[in-house]
Design a protein around this nucleic acid. Structure first.
Lengths: 343, 343
DNA sequence: TTGCACAATTGGATCGATCAAATAAGGTAA
DNA sequence: TTACCTTATTTGATCGATCCAATTGTGCAA
């Protein structure tokens, strides 16, 4: 029933040329004379020929496939970010003739075992890692064994930040939050608070720094700023409690910027929708409820990640092209027919 | 730098047998004498040999890869369900030696073009579709061309429901909602309303039917039931408005079951957290805010989908094994320290 | 011991493409 | 015209595994 698929030989016969010429038309058309090329192209179209992916991979020793780990927990409300990133990555990869495949792992050791499986089986020739930490054994293993990879997220440990072997793309949370604060102030909010995660997470610290910088820029000194920020773990309940504390120590607040949509939701509930709240990640929840949020622009991140993969190996020590910072978008939403959340 | 990977020939030489014997040990160990098998296994381990995936695929004409489409919109709050499904599928597929790859498409026509690309390139040998509708051109194309596939979701059009060529897995929304209603009643809620989608969507109608059945079972007649249910489009704002209407026509309500977490969130806001609300999909939002929800058990769905893929083609007309209904889980949450949502 | 069935193992061909090197065709200068 | 250099195209080998048919080994009955 499933008719035999046409091969290069079939096309060659139909076009009256050799296999290799067909191959050339497909892979380096410029070296084939135009007349010949047209004949081959026509035959390809007529037979509906498509190269057999596995045969090509076997011969070229390139899998043209990148592997992405799918996280088990998917990270609560913000899990949607990775999801969108994955979508963008798949789309961009297709355009470049690459395939995205998935794998799962329970921990770093397990993940390294997966690397081995995928690399030894020549299933994959590059990896995209979605989050890394200082001294991450995974990136160390990949570098040591010379396998190309890019991470979405900076390696926050100091030494690796400029490691020319470690290619990464990240979103400039600092710039995004600073911009959000500026916009809030421009639209009349005088006192803008920050609801962040406990100090120590690279990402969270950057976001707070962005807020602090924007306030400093507007003449708010450090002492005053200290009263305008509180911490909470990543949960709605914790955020709500923290936001209440914040309202206590700074009663004349006009707006709150939060380090995540989860925290923002907590703040929104705590303030009863009376304050303007800006979250981070622009998750479906922000959209559904209608509060402002900072969008990571995963599409740009995905594009940059693939561009970096092209450079892997070709890059020299200290090459700035091995890193890329994407500036996020601030999505302002005017909370429609007052939601009437009251906490 | 990257040492040449060992091949079957290397293993054969090391074990003092022929290539084919090595291949046999790997693919049909039972036909190899134990002593030989042990020798080969040892050599495999020592050399760290792994079969070259592309070479094997080329020869066996099997890709051992299933393709899943990653949706562009990811469906708001409930997008997380597909995400979790994808994770479960990847995990189960790995266990079966299968690879999951992704593709994207803008519409059905584009998706069919993708099918063609993936099939003709022998990249993939089965598809998993995440949602289908009556007369879906995609499933028609796949059936016509004889390519194996499974859908997550029933084809709601009547004719295909029992089409033995169409393999599907779905979640029994009716049973899930009915169970939720029973549990609410068992824990003291006398009057339980339903906030659903406008009639016409197969999934939505089933969920409402589950609610109606459970009430009928408890002696609530159709006339009374009619007052206990309203419709809303899938948005928090619409749900909030609808829930207010519902409260108007049935003031003594004790609880509301909703067709989705989005609707549930709207109901929760409208009722100020005074009523018990049960959503559907058990999304991160339900977890974060702490309301009850019905979990689709995507892990079971994924497992069933892969089992069905094994059967594709081998199944006879009317074989009940070509369909599978999974009963969802009702996750009851007692809304912790009162969230204090007031609408 | 010989013969025979059956299990275990082997060698060669093959999957569909590209690589590497050889050949053919086209042009220009001597 | 001949020698020589490009440019265009072809031929044979190869990637790493499995298929297939043929061969060798083993056990048991005659």
């Amino acid at each position: 029933m499933p008719r035999r698929l046409p091969t290069v030989s079939d096309v060659a016969r139909a076009a009256g040329v050799s296999r290799q010429t067909v191959s050339n038309v497909l892979n380096s058309p410029e070296i084939v004379r135009e007349a010949t090329r047209d004949r081959v192209t026509a035959a390809v179209a007529e037979l509906g020929y498509r190269p057999h992916a596995s045969a090509r991979r076997l011969r070229t020793r390139r899998a043209s496939t990148i592997a992405v780990r799918l996280d088990p927990f998917a990270g609560g409300i913000s899990g949607a970010v990775l999801d969108r990133f994955l979508h963008a990555l798949t789309e961009r990869a297709e355009a470049r003739g690459l395939t995205v495949m998935l794998y799962t792992a329970t921990d770093a050791g397990d993940e390294i075992r997966q690397f081995q499986r995928l690399v030894d089986g020549a299933v994959v020739d590059a990896f995209v890692l979605a989050s890394t930490y200082s001294g991450d054994p995974r990136t160390e293993w990949l570098i040591e064994h010379g396998h190309p990879f890019v991470t979405f997220g900076r390696p926050w440990g100091i030494p690796e930040l400029d490691d020319p072997q470690h290619f990464w793309v990240d979103v400039d949370g600092r710039a995004g939050v600073a911009e959000a604060v500026r916009r809030l102030r421009a639209s009349g909010a005088r006192r803008v608070g920050f609801l962040g995660w406990p100090a120590g997470s690279g990402t969270g610290d950057e976001r707070r720094a962005g807020w602090a910088a924007a306030l400093a820029e507007a003449g708010v000194d450090a002492g005053e700023r200290a009263l305008l920020t509180v911490d909470a773990e990543e949960s709605v309940a914790a955020a709500r409690a923290a936001a209440k504390r914040l309202l206590g120590q700074a009663s004349d607040l006009d707006a709150i910027v939060a380090a995540s949509d989860t925290l923002a939701l907590g703040a929104l509930i705590a303030t009863g929708g009376a304050l303007r709240v800006v979250g981070f990640d622009n998750t479906p929840v922000a959209e559904a409820i209608g509060f402002s949020s900072i969008d990571q622009r995963v599409d740009e991140v995905a594009a940059a990640a693939l561009e970096l993969l092209d450079l892997v190996g070709r890059s020299e020590a200290g090459d700035p092209r091995s890193h890329r910072l994407i500036t996020p978008d601030v999505i302002m939403r005017t909370p429609g027919p007052a939601l009437g959340l009251v906490g």
